[in-house]
């Protein structure tokens, strides 16, 4: 499934199964989000003002909390109509804050094994006069194999997350595509062996089923 495109019913259905997480552009907060201090007296001056990104679009807030709700449920929780929720989502997309939905899968499971090989690659590049790292980063990021791409501080320049159907395919991408991009000085590829937590979801267990009493004082 593409991360682009309009929010449609199909994606919401996926979300209802509790397997998808919204992709939200962190840079989108730079203008709209006011970072508040969370430490205050036991009470707080009204509303949800103690939040990190406050005041915030209530729909966005629910998405960020990773709450698996349908649009109808979001509408109830946020105290709006479903149409209003849809409008909020559309606006967030227009503002390029909310980029789309992706399922969060446990790739060790058989059904998800088609995309089972993942790697992180540290890339060193020579920055260009005029363009800095941006041109490289944007070029590398366009490859389908690249899931995420970040400019980093420290010992290397770009960190990219790559996904492929087999080790060979990922290796071929590194040797034939990535390392041959002009300006790339070196790559260091680390294949992921096992996942313990994915996008906030604990794999293999997590919390035990609740033993909370049904009725308690």
């Amino acid at each position: 499934m593409s991360s682009e495109g309009v929010i449609g019913t199909d994606r919401l259905e996926l979300y209802e199964f509790g397997v998808s997480a919204p992709r939200i552009c962190a840079q989108g907060f730079a203008d709209g989000g006011r970072v508040g201090t969370s430490k205050n007296k036991c009470g707080f001056p009204g509303g949800f003002s103690a939040n990190l990104f406050s005041p915030m679009n209530p729909v966005l807030k629910l998405l960020l909390d990773g709450v698996s709700l349908s649009t109808a449920q979001i509408a109830q929780v946020a105290g709006m109509t479903e149409v209003e929720v849809q409008q909020h989502l559309e606006q967030l997309k227009k503002d390029k804050i909310f980029l789309g939905w992706r399922p969060v899968l446990d790739l060790s499971r058989e059904a998800a094994a088609g995309v089972a090989v993942r790697a992180v690659i540290e890339v060193k590049v020579t920055p260009e006069r005029g363009g800095g790292f941006n041109r490289f980063a944007e070029r590398i990021a366009r490859f389908d194999e690249v899931e995420s791409c970040y400019l980093m501080s420290g010992g290397y320049d770009l960190l990219i997350f790559v996904k492929g159907p087999s080790l060979q395919k990922v290796a071929a991408f590194v040797s034939e595509k990535l390392s041959t991009v002009e300006g790339v000085l070196s790559t260091s590829t680390h294949f992921m062996l096992r996942c313990y937590k994915e996008q906030g979801f604990l794999l293999d267990g997590g919390e035990a089923p609740t033993t909370r009493l049904n009725v308690a004082p």
Partner: peptide
């Protein structure tokens, strides 16, 4: 569905 509890979820 229990709303009869007296503790956090």
């Amino acid at each position: 569905i229990s709303l009869g509890v007296g503790e956090p979820d």
